[in-house]
Amino acid sequence: MRSAAHSGHVYRRCGCRDQGGKQLGAHCPELATDPNHGTWTFSFDLPSPPPTIDATTSAAAATPPPKQPEQDCAG
């Protein structure tokens, strides 16, 4: 029988790219120095469905929606 505890983690990544155009993701050096750089993300493993349906493991990840720029108040 499986344990009730499932694994998951929280991490931060960004869309910066190196000179070759490859995305740096969680390896961007600015993430270590700028607390406002990048987006926080989490992922977790979901329990497998009953064996009679499918025997594979599912996983999920989520990021918050992009922040909307603050609009100036008129008045």
Rank of each mutant, 00 (worst) to 15 (best):
57 T>N: 13
29 P>I: 05
8 G>Y: 01
55 A>P: 06
67 K>P: 05
43 S>W: 04
68 Q>A: 10
13 R>N: 06
58 S>M: 08
30 E>L: 15
51 P>R: 05
46 L>D: 06
21 G>W: 06
57 T>H: 14
42 F>G: 14
19 Q>R: 12
64 P>R: 10
49 P>E: 09
38 G>R: 00
10 V>W: 06
39 T>A: 07
37 H>K: 05
50 P>D: 10
29 P>E: 07
46 L>H: 05
66 P>I: 04
73 C>D: 14
66 P>G: 02
50 P>L: 02
2 R>P: 13
42 F>M: 15
51 P>H: 08
58 S>D: 07
47 P>E: 11
70 E>R: 07
55 A>L: 02
71 Q>K: 10
54 D>V: 04
48 S>C: 12
49 P>V: 08
26 A>D: 15
73 C>R: 06
10 V>I: 13
70 E>D: 08
44 F>G: 10
37 H>T: 02
17 R>Q: 11
67 K>W: 00
35 P>R: 05
1 M>D: 10
9 H>M: 12
47 P>Q: 09
18 D>Q: 02
57 T>P: 08
4 A>I: 11
25 G>A: 08
57 T>L: 13
38 G>A: 04
71 Q>A: 10
56 T>R: 11
32 A>L: 11
69 P>S: 00
28 C>L: 06
63 T>Y: 01
51 P>G: 10
5 A>N: 12
8 G>L: 06
13 R>W: 00
8 G>M: 05
72 D>N: 08
21 G>R: 02
71 Q>T: 13
31 L>E: 03
20 G>C: 03
54 D>T: 05
32 A>I: 01
40 W>M: 11
57 T>V: 10
26 A>I: 03
1 M>T: 11
48 S>K: 12
59 A>H: 07
71 Q>W: 00
63 T>M: 03
41 T>F: 02
31 L>R: 05
33 T>S: 15
65 P>M: 03
18 D>R: 01
28 C>K: 02
58 S>K: 06
15 G>L: 01
53 I>W: 08
30 E>S: 13
11 Y>M: 06
70 E>V: 05
17 R>E: 12
19 Q>N: 11
52 T>H: 14
50 P>R: 15
73 C>Y: 02
12 R>K: 15
52 T>A: 13
67 K>I: 00
